[in-house]
């Protein structure tokens, strides 16, 4: 009896450790495979010339990734800038002002929106957003835009991450003890002062973590962005110009260019770059989060 319990405990511990480790190992394996496959292109070109150039002419053997990296960063940044304020405001309203009936009405809607496949957002973007930009919005600012643009990509992506953010913010604010709000209210604070100075403050580490998750999600989002952002390998110059993010590059070309070994290897390098950006980003945000948590306690 005693022995069998110990064996069970030992097995369970080992098993749980193994699963954790294998997730970690999988990440290493992916990294290594991508690095090995990128070998070909890296042997012919210096890493600096690949990352520092924005000239992309595979047929002439020129592989500059700068425009793709810049495109990815621009679309992601725009999406987060557009999504964060409304997601935060709506979540604060839902948790601090709306009554529980409205809250319980909205929760499933938000989950539903978060569950809509990206391609649907892409189609919507193509059918309504792109013409809107090209016919109504762009003429106010520039001579000509097809509508397939950084702006379209940013807006579609923002609309996709808003439900994700709101779902997480909702749980976050719900987890903040009522006593804390009451402590503030009892000192004569209004509900807005309480929300801003106490609830949001207490939730700050969680808000940052949510934004990090949304950014990671936005980095990797492929299909919906690809459908509306124009896919032209130029440096992002204006909101109305097309951009070409890394995931779109890979998805558009992989499997078609197998005859050019350099090209295939370049796409692998694109995946590796994406991979490294996401890891670096997560490590940095983890450190920021850690310090933030300590400061607020």
């Amino acid at each position: 009896m005693k022995l069998s319990r110990r064996i069970k405990d030992l097995t369970a511990t080992r098993l749980m450790m193994l699963t954790t480790m294998s997730a970690f190992a999988l990440m290493i394996i992916i990294g290594v495979v991508l690095a090995v496959k990128s070998e070909q292109i890296l042997s012919g070109h210096s890493l600096w010339s690949l990352l520092g150039s924005s000239v992309w002419k595979p047929m002439k053997g020129e592989f500059g990734f700068l425009a793709f990296i810049a495109g990815t960063l621009a679309v992601t940044a725009l999406a987060i800038v557009l999504a964060l304020p409304p997601a935060l405001m709506a979540s604060i309203w839902l948790s601090e002002y709306a009554n529980s009936r409205i809250r319980s009405l909205f929760a499933p809607v938000i989950d539903l929106l978060a569950g809509i496949p990206p391609v649907v957002y892409g189609v919507w973007g193509t059918l309504t957003l792109v013409p809107l930009i090209s016919e109504t919005l762009a003429p106010c600012f520039v001579d000509f835009s097809t509508g397939y643009s950084l702006l379209a990509g940013g807006i579609v992506l923002a609309i996709m991450v808003i439900p994700l953010m709101m779902g997480l913010f909702g749980e976050l604010f719900a987890s903040i003890p009522r006593d804390l709000r009451e402590a503030s209210l009892a000192l004569g604070a209004t509900r807005w002062e309480t929300a801003r100075r106490v609830v949001v403050r207490k939730a700050l580490p969680g808000i940052v973590a949510t934004v990090v998750l949304a950014i990671s999600r936005a980095f990797g989002e492929t299909i919906a962005v690809m459908m509306v952002c124009g896919n032209v390998a130029d440096m992002p110059g204006s909101l109305f110009n097309p951009v070409y993010p890394l995931p779109a590059l890979i998805a558009n070309n992989y499997g078609e260019m197998m005859s050019l070994p350099d090209y295939e290897s370049a796409l692998m390098l694109a995946a590796l770059i994406l991979f490294v950006i996401i890891i670096a980003f997560n490590v940095i945000s983890h450190a920021i989060l850690h310090r933030l948590k300590q400061r607020i306690a």
Partner: peptide, 19 residues
């Protein structure tokens, strides 16, 4: 809010603000 300011309420569980 002005009313509550005139009455300091000390809750049964002490609750410090996150600052």
């Amino acid at each position: 809010a002005a009313l509550r300011r005139r009455m300091g309420l000390l809750a049964q569980r002490p609750t410090v603000l996150p600052m």
